[in-house]
Design a protein around this nucleic acid. Structure first.
Length: 573
DNA sequence: GCCGTTTTCGGCCCGACTGTTTTCAGTCG
C-alpha cells in the first residue's frame, strides 16, 4: 500500500509540534505546518507524484528541503528527522499540545520541571497540585488543565454541518430578540459550509455590547462560560459545542465578517497581500497607517488588495487567491441550478415514503425530474428489488408519468456492484431503465487493488451510469473503502460514467478535494440526496455546498441539465 | 523552512482574553 497524503502531513505536523516545544524558529515551525496543509489539500496521491518524478517544489509551501523529505517518506515510509526529534523530545509531548490552554511553552515547562511526558503524568501532577507551583502557572491554570483532561477523554468533536445548523438556529433567534442586536451572522467554517464544524463563530453588530454579552452568556443552553469580554465572549453549550460571539461596529462589518469567516489560512494570505501594499487588515477594517480606508463590506476588503470577491466556500487558501487575482475564479453551481434529484428510495425497498409521495415532494421543490433508484436484491436487508419487482415498478412509473405534466419520473435502480465487479441485476432488466446508480454495500474491506478493479470492471458494463457514494465513508464513523479514486475517475471520464456526490450530510461523498480531482480528471458529477424519505430530498443543499467547496460550476454537474439533455448525456454508446 | 512587482537575505498576519503578573507571556482563533 503506497504512502498516503495524510501519512505525510501527519509526520510534518508532529515535526512542527516537537520543534515548537524545542523552541525552534517559529517560522520554521510554520513552514512544516504549511507544507502539511499543502499536502492535505492535494487532489492527487503524493506517492504517484514522487514516482513520476514530478517537481514537488511547485506545491505551495514546499521548497527543496521539504520536497526531499516527502520523497524520503514516500520511499522509506518514515522520516529520519522525526526519529531524531523523538530521540531528543518525547513523542508523547505532541499529545499534550491538544490540551486546551497548553501550548509549546507550557508543555516544555511541564516536561523540564516536572518530567511530565504523557496525559497520565499531567493528570497526576495536576491532582497532586504540583502544577500551580510552577512559574507562570497558577491554581486556575491547574484547574483548567484538569477540566480539559476530562473533556479530552471524550472524542474530539466536530459536528456535522446539519447538526450545527440545528444548534445555531435557535441561538441566533434568541440573540435577535435582544434589543441591542442589530445584525447577526454565523461566520466561521459554518459559513464556509464545511462538512463538519468545530465551533460556531457568531458575529453581531450591537448597540449595548456589555448587555448583549451578558445576555449571550446566560442563554439557557450554555453549560460553561469560557471567557467574557466587551467585544468577544466564548461559551460551551450543553452539547459540548463551543460558541464564540464577536461584537463589531457597523462600519467595519465587512472586515469583521471576512476575518471571522476565515479560513485562517485564507486570512493570512489576504493580509500578506495587504502588507505588500503597505496596508494592514484586521477585524475592524483595512488601514493605511492609522487611517481606516475600507471595511464596510467584504467586497471593499477584497478591492483593497486587488482581488475579486471570493465566495466563502472557496476561502481555504487553496488556489482561490491566485484565481481571484487573475479573474479566474469559477462560477459556482447553486441550488437553483439543480433541476432534479438522481438518487432516491421508496417503500419498495428501504425508503419511508411511497413513490407518489416522493414524486410530490420533488415537484414541490421545483424539480423537473426525480430518479427513483431503489436497492437491488443483493441488499436483502433493505428489501432490495429483483428483476420481477423492478419490472412492476417500471410499469407503475410509466403509468404515473402519463399523468404528470412538466415532470418526469426517471426509472432507475441503485444496483449493487458485486465482489467480482458484475452488477446485481441482468442487462435485460437494466436496459429498460433510464438511469442506474451503481454502488458498493458489501465486501467493504477488500484491498485497494481489488476494490479498485472491482469498480473498474463494473464500469465496463454499458449500463453503468453513476458510481453511488464513491468512497463509502460515513463522516465520523467509517473511513470508506480503499480505492484508487484518481484512476477510477479517469476511467469514468473515458467511458462516459459519472461520479455521485452523495448529499446526505453524514456522507457528503465525494469530498471537496475529490470534487477538484473530478474537475481535473474531466469527469462530471451528479449531486444526489440518496433520500430515504420526502424530507431528505432537501439535503440537496448540503451536496451543492460541498460541490461549491470543490470548485464545481453548473457545467460540472449533470443534474443541472434539463431532462432531455441529461438523458442524452448519460447515454453510452 | 519558504519565498520574491521593493528582497536570493531578511522578512514571515493580527488582536482579544486570561492568568499571573504589576507590564506581560502564553494561548487561541
Amino acid at each position: 500500500m503506497p504512502v498516503q497524503n495524510v501519512d505525510v502531513s501527519e509526520i510534518f505536523r508532529r515535526i512542527a509540534n516537537l520543534l515548537e516545544i524545542e523552541g525552534a524558529n517559529p517560522f520554521r515551525v510554520r513552514a512544516y505546518r504549511n507544507a502539511a496543509r499543502s499536502v492535505d489539500s492535494l487532489p492527487r496521491n503524493i506517492s504517484e507524484m514522487v514516482e513520476a518524478g514530478e517537481d514537488l517544489t511547485e506545491l505551495p509551501g514546499v521548497g527543496k528541503d521539504i520536497a526531499g523529505k516527502i520523497s524520503e517518506i514516500v520511499n522509506t515510509g518514515a522520516l529520519k528527522q522525526l526519529k531524531d526529534l523523538e530521540g531528543r523530545t518525547p513523542a508523547e509531548l505532541d499529545k499534550l499540545m491538544n490540551i486546551s490552554g497548553l501550548g509549546p511553552r507550557r508543555v516544555k515547562a511541564l516536561y523540564m520541571n516536572l518530567g511530565i511526558k504523557s496525559l497520565e503524568d499531567l493528570k497526576t501532577a495536576a491532582e497532586e497540585q504540583k502544577i500551580r507551583e510552577l512559574n507562570g502557572f497558577g491554581e486556575k491554570t491547574e484547574q483548567s488543565i484538569l477540566e480539559s483532561l476530562a473533556g479530552a477523554e471524550q472524542e474530539e468533536q466536530r459536528i456535522q454541518l446539519h447538526e450545527a445548523e440545528q444548534r445555531a438556529a435557535p441561538l441566533v433567534e434568541y440573540l435577535k430578540d435582544h434589543e441591542g442586536v442589530e445584525r447577526i451572522t454565523v461566520a466561521g467554517s459554518y459559513r464556509r459550509r464545511k462538512e463538519t464544524v468545530g465551533d460556531l463563530d457568531i458575529l453581531a453588530v450591537c448597540k449595548k455590547n456589555q448587555s448583549v454579552m451578558e445576555y449571550f452568556t446566560v442563554y439557557e443552553d450554555v453549560q460553561k462560560v469560557v471567557s467574557k469580554g466587551d467585544t468577544r465572549s466564548t461559551v460551551v453549550l450543553k452539547s459540548g459545542l463551543q460558541v464564540d460571539l464577536r461584537v463589531l461596529p457597523e462600519a467595519g462589518y465587512g472586515a469583521g465578517l471576512h476575518y471571522f469567516t476565515g479560513s485562517k489560512a485564507h486570512n493570512i494570505a489576504v493580509r500578506k497581500k495587504a502588507v505588500k501594499r503597505n496596508l494592514k487588515i484586521n477585524e475592524y477594517g483595512v488601514y493605511r497607517g492609522d487611517e481606516r480606508i475600507a471595511g464596510k463590506t467584504e467586497q471593499e476588503v477584497y478591492d483593497q488588495v486587488g482581488l475579486a470577491y471570493i465566495e466563502p466556500e472557496l476561502r481555504e487558501d487553496d488556489g482561490e487567491i491566485e484565481a481571484a487575482e487573475t479573474d479566474n475564479l469559477p462560477a459556482l453551481a447553486a441550488l437553483e441550478d439543480i433541476r432534479g434529484d438522481l438518487h432516491s428510495h421508496t417503500k419498495a425497498s428501504d425508503g419511508h415514503d411511497t413513490l407518489e409521495d416522493m414524486v410530490q415532494a420533488a415537484q414541490n421543490l421545483g424539480y423537473e425530474y426525480l430518479a427513483v433508484t431503489d436497492h437491488s436484491k443483493r441488499v436483502a436487508m433493505a428489501n432490495g428489488l429483483d428483476a420481477g419487482r423492478l419490472e412492476r415498478q417500471i410499469e407503475r412509473i410509466n403509468k404515473l408519468n402519463e399523468k404528470l405534466d412538466g415532470f418526469r419520473i426517471l426509472k432507475g435502480v441503485e444496483v449493487d456492484i458485486l465482489e467480482d465487479g458484475s452488477l446485481d441485476l441482468d442487462d435485460d432488466i437494466l436496459e429498460k431503465l433510464d438511469i442506474r446508480v451503481c454502488s458498493i454495500h458489501y465486501n467493504l474491506s477488500l484491498s485497494r487493488e481489488k476494490q479498485t478493479s472491482r469498480i473498474l470492471k463494473a464500469m465496463e458494463n454499458p449500463y453503468f451510469n453513476i458510481l453511488g457514494h464513491p468512497t463509502g465513508r460515513i463522516i465520523g464513523q467509517r473511513k470508506g473503502y480503499e480505492i484508487d479514486l484518481e484512476k477510477i475517475m479517469k476511467t469514468a471520464a473515458e467511458s462516459g460514467c459519472f461520479m455521485e456526490l452523495n448529499a446526505d450530510p453524514q456522507r457528503l461523498d465525494l469530498t471537496d478535494t475529490h470534487c477538484r480531482m473530478a474537475g481535473e480528471s474531466g469527469v462530471k458529477i451528479a449531486i444526489a440526496t440518496d433520500a430515504h424519505s420526502r424530507g431528505s430530498l432537501e439535503f440537496m443543499r448540503f451536496g451543492v455546498n460541498q460541490a461549491r467547496r470543490g470548485w464545481m460550476g453548473p457545467e460540472n454537474v449533470i443534474n443541472t441539465r434539463n431532462c432531455e439533455d441529461l438523458l442524452k448525456l448519460i447515454k453510452r454508446r
